[in-house]
Design a protein around this nucleic acid. Structure first.
Lengths: 198, 198
DNA sequence: AGTGAAAACGGACCGTGGTCCGTTTTTATT
DNA sequence: AATAAAAACGGACCACGGTCCGTTTTCACT
């Protein structure tokens, strides 16, 4: 749990003080434990502080806000996932044809976003962390699209291809309309073909 | 400000008591005034209650939550917009070819979502109101797509076409990446052509 | 080891969203 | 008009996110 995020856009120049590092570690462990036992909604900042054995001020000094704490918890699995895309086995990782990689990418992202929906929602879609996450996903999609020789405004088309995989949209389809996941995935593959063809 | 929402899926069987109706009216007026003067973030439920001259409990009895109140405020402009789509002048309203209507629809929705972004964000994307709004937009999109003889899973493709117009996605593009609105719109038109062609 | 400045800590404190329940208003009925 | 049940009201109250500032810890430098 001490690994640093992939793609460290701006690494801190000065390292953390020892007590700070120890407390961050304890807070993340406490937060994960509380999420497991009480669920996301049942987690309070006071409880996290108490469980980690630190004052509440420390939690906010480290993570800025509740959203920030959630984003930090989410960061573990995100980093892992990004590693699988960058250097894992094909077809998600490198080695497969671009179209296969794209389809594997979409399926994997969709499954992940559904599995972590509560946490992603609680982490908010703003802030620097959210930006970094989006940047990675968008960059990879644009790369695959350029490999497929897609014509047009690739940045915008990539966004359009990614948007249906985001949690608010999936929530609408799955939770409210009760749509099957396989059907959503098939629809997304169709979309991928339509956007990349020509 | 007393009109009822379009497409009243479930109209209340029993009408409101007179004091209840009067208070709702006063609360909506107060909320709108506070939004205009303090902005969405500066609006507090206590302030709305005070300005409307009622107790705080009444606000929550009427609207359930802050999100609910915001959704109710939003409902005015949403109703107006839906009316323009259903019975306004072409190309947004009926009378133009389906493809022109679709493009006008996308542009209009995009502009609206950007203009009301703060309010839409504060209203939340869940709850029955959000569902009703989404239902209308999705239904209309599916209708236009069927007019265009689009093949495939129309419900899923309509969602894919609408997703890039949603506030979280637009936020990312406009606010964070600083993308121009015209560019986003051109990209969306391209997307509409790719999804509907074949 | 001693020292001073910078960084981090802790928990009392505050504002706001949301609840609860005793009181008041409305409305249907006679 | 009187009455009673139902609905709505109001504001004290609570919980939680977030802030503030006096105290403690760390660390670089001597």
């Amino acid at each position: 749990m001490t690994e640093r995020p992939l793609l460290p856009l701006l690494e801190d120049a000065t390292p953390e003080r020892r007590d700070a590092a120890r407390n961050r570690e304890a807070l993340l462990v406490a937060a994960q434990a509380l999420i497991d036992s009480c669920g996301i909604d049942g987690l309070t900042m006071d409880a996290v502080a108490a469980k980690a054995g630190v004052g509440k001020g420390t939690v906010f000094r480290r993570f800025g806000s509740r959203e920030g704490l959630m984003a930090a918890v989410l960061d573990f699995s995100e980093t892992e996932w990004q590693a699988a895309v960058i250097s894992g086995p094909p077809p998600l990782g490198p080695g497969a044809p671009a179209m296969e990689r794209l389809l594997a990418f979409g399926r994997s992202r969709l499954e992940r976003n559904l599995m972590l929906a509560d946490l992603i929602r609680a982490a908010g879609w703003s802030g620097p962390r959210g930006f970094a996450v989006y940047s990675f996903v968008a960059m990879h999609t644009r790369y695959l699209m350029s490999e497929l020789h897609v014509t047009g405004d690739i940045a915008v088309l990539a966004t359009a291809l990614l948007a249906p995989l985001e949690v608010p949209v999936l929530d609408q389809q799955v939770r409210i309309e009760g749509m099957e996941i396989d059907r959503i995935m098939e629809g997304w593959e169709d979309l991928a073909h339509r956007i990349t063809q020509r």
